[in-house]
């Protein structure tokens, strides 16, 4: 029984010989949500999204978009869907305007609406001034903005993004994030699922998170619940020289330290406690005189993510 959500994945499975990339995955993406689709490399995120966008075929199971099974009728299922899978390329001999027109014609839009939509979208993805230049000369960031633009043609109610920022430089990533943020803030009837490795980007953009590993769903909930601070915090303590077992032993003896282990030339420490406990930990750490010159603290989402992935191994 389907829930009526715009994306419904039921017992989806993809096998490559012996290897199971997606393992009877069940996932229902809430209407009007911006869902971050997370998981380590090889977890099955891209495979799932490629099945949803009909780039690959499922071994078994169902994947519904707007109530239509994409494995059975991909044309109908993808009718109201925009996609950016990885970093797509465009025909270099076309201009952004011609590219959007081509996509509009494929979708079946009228010439009038293609014209008005093209101008609106190029404005939205900040490519209006490049509208009539051939794409072959564009940077990766510009091409990715065109990719997002073509996904927006005809106002889709579902957008599927597979690592839309991958391969972009920091400026390109920031521009892309800004456009996605505007999209989220200014759309009423839009459901987005976006896979990404960048957790701060996900926490910045998404209101829900679905985490998968080994092709199976680990958790799927509001980001406010998943990223809720349970008091556990992972941090990387940077020390002068190479940390020895004596140093690690002394850190472990500090109050509220859950674990401490060598992490390359640093020490990976997990503590449990509220903000005042963390203040005390920093003071105690300084008092140890072991040559600490810096501490990188993971965000609550990062800590939860790593914990869940570790548990699911």
């Amino acid at each position: 029984m389907l829930s009526g959500n715009p994306i419904e994945i039921v017992k989806l499975r993809k096998e490559y010989g012996e290897f199971v990339a997606v393992n009877d995955l069940d996932l229902s993406v809430k209407k009007n949500s911006f869902t971050g689709f997370l998981g380590p490399n090889g977890a099955g995120k891209s495979t799932t999204l490629k099945i949803l966008t009909h780039l690959i075929n499922a071994t078994s199971g169902e994947a519904y978009i707007n109530g239509i099974d994409v494995t059975k009728d991909p044309k109908k299922a993808l009718t109201n869907v925009g996609t950016v899978v990885e970093t797509p390329e465009f025909y270099p001999y076309l201009t952004p305007k011609e590219t959007l027109k081509y996509v509009g014609q494929i979708i079946g839009m009228s010439p009038e609406s293609i014209m008005s939509e093209t101008d609106r979208i190029l404005e939205k993805v900040k490519m209006a001034e490049w509208a009539d230049k051939r794409i072959g000369t564009f940077s990766k960031g510009m091409r990715q903005r065109i990719a997002l633009g073509q996904a927006l043609m005809n106002n889709p109610n579902v957008i599927i993004l597979d690592e839309p920022n991958s391969g972009l430089d920091p400026r390109g990533q920031a521009e892309m994030r800004e456009i996605l943020k505007n999209l989220r803030n200014n759309s009423n009837n839009l459901t987005v699922i976006m896979s990404s490795h960048v957790l701060h980007e996900v926490s910045d953009l998404c209101d829900r998170i679905a985490l998968i590993n080994h092709g199976k769903l680990i958790v799927h909930d509001d980001i406010s619940i998943i990223g809720k601070d349970d008091g556990t915090r992972r941090m990387i303590v940077k020390v002068e020289g190479i940390p020895d077992s004596g140093m690690i032993e002394r850190i472990l003896q500090l109050n509220n330290v859950v674990s401490a282990e060598r992490f390359g030339n640093d020490i990976d420490v997990t503590i449990k406690g509220d903000d005042s406990i963390r203040v005390k930990f920093y003071n105690d750490l300084g008092a140890l005189n072991i040559g600490v010159y810096g501490v990188n603290e993971d965000s609550a989402l990062e800590t939860t993510y790593l914990k869940l992935i570790k548990e699911s191994r």
């Binding site: 780039l55 390329e89 465009f90 996509v103 494929i106």
Partner: peptide, 14 residues
């Protein structure tokens, strides 16, 4: 090879 399929094939077209 040129990854243009990522745009064309993900559209509602057989």
């Amino acid at each position: 090879e040129e990854r243009t399929a990522l745009v064309l094939f993900t559209r509602p077209i057989k």
